[in-house]
Structure formats: structure tokens, C-alpha cells
Design a protein around this nucleic acid. Structure first.
Lengths: 162, 162
DNA sequence: CTCTCTAGTTGCATGATGAAACTAATTGCG
DNA sequence: CGCAATTAGTTTCATCATGCAACTAGAGAG
């Protein structure tokens, strides 16, 4: 096999997600779709990407159930690409990427936009990870456990140890 | 230019982040690093990737300031790759990817691990996005605003409209 | 009916990826 | 010490993906 390795049946959920949009363009297409873009030509114009690549990415995203093809809302005979719930579910991934850049980029002054609370216009907080009981968790407070094991005596590998 | 387009100077922070790990392997390397992996051979064995690709990814991650080369902790003459704070900051991205798979994957039974609260062993909650005043925000409650504009009368483009 | 726009496809050059073989320095071991 | 095995890569080569430009079929506009 010389093909780009597929993570479709990898046991790690991170790898499985990367199988859907682990390339440079898919998440940007989803970003535009979240902003309301639905037509081929508009994706192409806004992202400035080659049309053949766009066509193949759109096809892949439809196959993955992230986009769906619907008749154009303006009544024309053309169709449009609309996000499915699965596609809209990628929103936190985009926020996480955005916040990582905002925090660590070498030239944050080059970043053009801020994600704000629509009602009030103030920047949002950083994404938070909470325990079931509501405590705020840092990376080191979490552990990976085998799925089948429901409740054992904390034998998982520690994250970001040392 | 026929090279893979670089987003290094793109105004969108999502694109800038993808410039660092918008390929299939980088985030998996960071995942392993978060689990404590530091040596070339261990990355190679656990990820099962070609050694030349691993070498080039590690080089790129070091250049991006996500990993740093340090003397091996066991006193040997070899060196190790350690996450920088910038690299550890990618943790929420990995969590977002994981939770997206957990929620939308077609075969969730194939997912091997669960992210749990280390102290208690219960699965963590979903990542939450809050407004500055603490309100929980859904995707549609947010807007993108030009960075320079601090406080105007809500003219940003709505996210996930329609 | 013609002209333009939309949404692609096709062809070609080049870069990235993957498998396997090779190398050089470093350990481990008897 | 001497030699085999490990570690951390590099090199080579085949194949795949990406990018650009040119082309095309169908729809809409006038």
C-alpha cells in the first residue's frame, strides 16, 4: 500500500476524525459552510483553491456525511452543499484551532477576526473541559481508559505527565 | 507555485493552525507526545508510520516550536522530543477531534478509549464554550468580528445561520 | 439564439507520501 | 575489548495528491 494511510478503522478517535478532515482544506470548507457558504463557486472564490481539488473535497465530505447536496434555495436548477448535523458538530474543532492560534501564534497581529458572543459582542472565553461533577479540568487531570473497562482503579496512562 | 499552499500568513487563525498540523500525522504525533512518548523509535513503533515521514514531521514540529529537542532523560547519548507549552496547548484540539468522533462516528464501538477524569475515572463532559459573563454558547450564538473593531453594533457575519 | 455563468472534468508538472534498503553512531553483552 | 543489536535517521524509488490551466456541458440572461 502506497496510498495515504487511512485511519478509518483505527481504534483512536482522533485518528478517525483526521480521516475525515486531516487534510489542509476540509476544515476550511467547513468553516466557510458555517459562515453560510453553500455554492461551489463561492467556496472556490473565498478559499482561492483549485477547482478540481474543491470538487474532490466536496465529494469526500458528502461521502463522510458532513455535507449534503440540496437543491439551491434560490430556485435555480443548480444544487448547494449544506452542512449536516455531523458537519455542524465540527464547530468546537474550529474553535479549538482558532484559540490555539490566538494563544501561540508568533504574529497574532496578523489574525483578522475575533470570535465574539453575538449578543454583547465580547470575545468568548477559552474552551473549557469539565469533569462530570463540574470541576474544570487541565490536561494533566485526565486519563485515557480502555472503553470496555467502566470503573477500575485508575490504571490508565496519564496524559502530559512529567 | 505548485507547492502545497501555505497558510502561514493567512488572516484566518484556523488556516494558520492548519499550517502547523494540517496533515494527517502531526496531531497523532502530538497525541503520543501528550501520552509521554519522546523517542523517535517509540513514535515510529506506536504510530506505524514510515521513518522518513516521521523524521520530516518531527523536524517541522520542532521548527514550529511545538516540539523541542532535549537530551534523553535516561542519560544516553541520544536525544528526545519534548512538547513545548505551545505543543501542550494543542490538547483542546485533540479533545475536540475525539469528541466529534465519539458523537458522530458511524462505528463508535470501534473506538478503543475514553477520556476520563483522572480522579474518579468518570468520562469528561463535552467541551464548553462560554461567553465572558459565563453563559454557555451554542455555535449560533457566536459571530466573527474584525479584530480592530472593539465594540460596534453587532455587524459581524452570523455563524451557522439558516 | 447567442453569450455568459456555473460547476465541474481533463491533462500535465511537481511535491508529498510510503515501503524498503542502507548507514553511522551507540549500546548491550559475553 | 569485540561483536551483535538498537537507535535514529537518510536514500532511493514508485505512486499518490495537489495545483494550475485549459476545456466542456448545461443553465440563465437578454
Amino acid at each position: 500500500m502506497v496510498k495515504r494511510t487511512s485511519f478509518e478503522h483505527d481504534p483512536c478517535p482522533v485518528a478517525r476524525a483526521l480521516d475525515a478532515f486531516g487534510d489542509g482544506w476540509s476544515l476550511l470548507i467547513i468553516r466557510e459552510a458555517l459562515l453560510g457558504v453553500r455554492r461551489f463557486s463561492e467556496f472556490q472564490a473565498r478559499l482561492g483553491m483549485a477547482k478540481n481539488i474543491l470538487a474532490s473535497r466536496l465529494r469526500a465530505l458528502v461521502e463522510h456525511g458532513i455535507l449534503e447536496i440540496v437543491p439551491a434555495s434560490d430556485g435555480s436548477a443548480y444544487h448547494a452543499y449544506r452542512l449536516t448535523p455531523k458537519g455542524r458538530g465540527a464547530f468546537p474543532i474550529l474553535v479549538a484551532l482558532r484559540q490555539w492560534s490566538e494563544e501561540f501564534d508568533a504574529h497574532p497581529d496578523e489574525i483578522a477576526t475575533v470570535l465574539v458572543d453575538r449578543d454583547g459582542g465580547r470575545p468568548v472565553r477559552k474552551l473549557e473541559l469539565h469533569a462530570e461533577d463540574g470541576r474544570l479540568l487541565a490536561p494533566g487531570d485526565t486519563t485515557l481508559q480502555p472503553r470496555s473497562v467502566r470503573k477500575t482503579k485508575k490504571t490508565g496512562a496519564r496524559l502530559s505527565s512529567h
